[in-house]
Design a protein around this nucleic acid. Structure first.
Length: 108
DNA sequence: CCATTGACTCGGA
DNA sequence: GTCCGAGCCAATG
């Protein structure tokens, strides 16, 4: 459990219901925009233990690419996120935009 | 220690 | 819009 991993987990827990974020976005917020691939690794290995909203994380194209995509889509739909027939989410509509509250939280 | 591994991303054709 | 190649880097073995 490294500081980087802890930070990523903490940020993931801040992604609100009904919104999605991209791997790169989480990487960027964690201070390491090159670590997108590592975000997926964290989700893969720690989602259950840390109760992470793994289903809200999709790729930069808005496409759902997880090995559990069927279940992921169900979870997203249940939160009100529209997923089209190509496993695609419109990021313009559903992508999480961190607000001032989040910025303040990041400070401390 | 060194090599491999990705639920990724970007830019160019 | 598609496809492909190169870059990325913490974690894993």
């Amino acid at each position: 459990m490294t500081p980087f991993t802890e930070k990523v987990i903490a940020i993931l827990k801040k992604v609100p219901q009904g919104k999605v974020a991209t791997y790169g976005q989480i990487a960027y917020l964690s201070g390491n925009r090159r670590a997108a691939r590592h975000i997926s690794r964290i989700l893969y290995s720690m989602s259950e233990r840390h109760q992470l909203p793994w289903h809200r994380i999709i790729n930069a194209q808005g496409k759902i690419v997880s090995p559990n995509s069927e279940n992921q889509i169900k979870l997203l739909m249940a939160e009100g996120v529209a997923v089209n027939e190509n496993n695609h989410v419109d990021l313009k509509i559903h992508q999480w935009q961190p607000d001032d509250t989040f910025a303040e939280w990041m400070e401390g």
